[in-house]
C-alpha cells in the first residue's frame, strides 16, 4: 500500500528535473578533462613542502626583508613607477582606440538586418572577419609583440606601449562586444525598430545600459596592463620591470621587495579607482 502511494503515477518520472542528466554529464566530462591536464603538467604540490626544498625557499623569501628604503633608490623607483603607469595608460588608450570600432562593428545587437531573424550575408561575413582580426591580435602574447617591436623601434617604453596596445586591443574588443551582447537587447532593438541609426542606438540604448560594466572592465584591464608592463620590462621595454630585472640579476632581493610593494600599491589604486567609478556610474 505504501509503495503504491509513494509511486503515484502522476508524480512519477515525468516530474523529474529533465536537465539533471545534462548537468551530471558536464560535471563528469569536466572531471575527465581535468585529470589528464593535471598529469600532463606534473602537478605535484607536495614537492614544495619537502624538507630539502623548503629550506632554500624560506631563505630566499627571508632575503626580501627588509625592503630597501634609501633616498636615491626610492627616487629611482618613483621615476620608473611613473614610467610604468605611463606605459600602461598609453597602451590601454591606444588599445581602446583599436577595440571600440572593432567591438561596435562586430556586435550583433546593432545589426539592422538581424532585427527580424537572420543577419544579411555581407555584414555577417564582415563580423566574422573582425572577430578573426581580434583573435589574431590577442593570440600573440604581449611579450612576443614586445620582442618584435624592441627590434623595430629599439629598447625603451615605445615597444611596450605598442605591445600592450595590440594584445589588449584584441582582448578589449572581444570583451566589449561580449558585454554589449550579454545585456537585454530590447532597449537597443526598440530604438532601431523605430528608425534610429546604429550609432544612435548605441549611444542612447546600448552604452547607457552597459557603461558601468564597460568602465569597470577597462579599469581592470588597465591594472593588468600595469602588471604586464613589468613583464615587458624584462625584455627591455622600460619601466619598473627593467629595474626589477636588473636587481634580480644582481641578487638585490631587497630592491625587488620594494618594487613588489609598489606594484601592490598600484593594483590597490586601480581597485579603488574602479570601485569609485562604478559607484559614480551605478
Amino acid at each position: 500500500m505504501q509503495t503504491v502511494l509513494s509511486r503515484n503515477p502522476q508524480r512519477g518520472p515525468s516530474k523529474r528535473d529533465p536537465a539533471w542528466m545534462g548537468r551530471m554529464f558536464w560535471l563528469l566530462a569536466g572531471a575527465a578533462l581535468l585529470w589528464p591536464a593535471l598529469v600532463l603538467t606534473e602537478f605535484k604540490v607536495w614537492t614544495l613542502f619537502e624538507a630539502s626544498n623548503l629550506k632554500p625557499t624560506l631563505k630566499f623569501l627571508g632575503d626580501f626583508f627588509p625592503p630597501k628604503i634609501e633616498g636615491e633608490f626610492l627616487l629611482l623607483v618613483a621615476k620608473e613607477t611613473w614610467r610604468t603607469v605611463a606605459i600602461a595608460t598609453a597602451g590601454i588608450a591606444l588599445a581602446m582606440l583599436l577595440a571600440v570600432p572593432l567591438a561596435l562593428l562586430s556586435v550583433r545587437v546593432l545589426s539592422v538586418s538581424a532585427l527580424t531573424g537572420k543577419m544579411n550575408k555581407l555584414p555577417s561575413a564582415l563580423r566574422t572577419l573582425l572577430r578573426w582580426v581580434m583573435v589574431l591580435l590577442r593570440s600573440v602574447p604581449e611579450l612576443i609583440w614586445a620582442l618584435i617591436f624592441v627590434r623595430v623601434v629599439g629598447l625603451g617604453p615605445t615597444a611596450g606601449v605598442i605591445a600592450i596596445a595590440l594584445t589588449y586591443g584584441g582582448m578589449l574588443g572581444k570583451v566589449y562586444a561580449e558585454i554589449l551582447e550579454s545585456g537585454d537587447a530590447q532597449v537597443t532593438q526598440s530604438l532601431l525598430r523605430n528608425g534610429a541609426g546604429r550609432l544612435q542606438a548605441f549611444f542612447y540604448g546600448l552604452l547607457p545600459q552597459n557603461a558601468a560594466e564597460l568602465t569597470s572592465y577597462s579599469v581592470y584591464r588597465w591594472e593588468c596592463a600595469i602588471r604586464s608592463s613589468a613583464v615587458l620590462g624584462f625584455v627591455g621595454a622600460g619601466g619598473l620591470g627593467q629595474q626589477m630585472d636588473a636587481s634580480m640579476k644582481m641578487f638585490n632581493v631587497s630592491e625587488v621587495a620594494t618594487m613588489l610593494i609598489v606594484f601592490m600599491l598600484l593594483v590597490w589604486l586601480a581597485d579603488a579607482t574602479s570601485a569609485w567609478l562604478r559607484k559614480e556610474l551605478g
Binding site: Q186, V187, Q189, S190, L191, R193, N194, G195, A196, G197, Q200, A201, Y204, G205, P208, Q209, A211, A212, L281, G282
Partner: peptide, 27 residues
C-alpha cells in the same frame, strides 16, 4: 515613420528621463 511602444518600456536604467524621451527624436 512608425512607432512601436513595447509593453515593457525600453529604457536603460541609468539614463535620465529627458534623454529617454528625446530618444524618440533620433530618426
Amino acid at each position: 515613420s512608425l512607432f512601436l511602444a513595447p509593453q515593457v518600456p525600453p529604457l536603460p536604467p541609468r539614463q535620465r528621463v529627458v534623454t529617454a524621451v528625446l530618444a524618440g527624436l533620433l530618426p
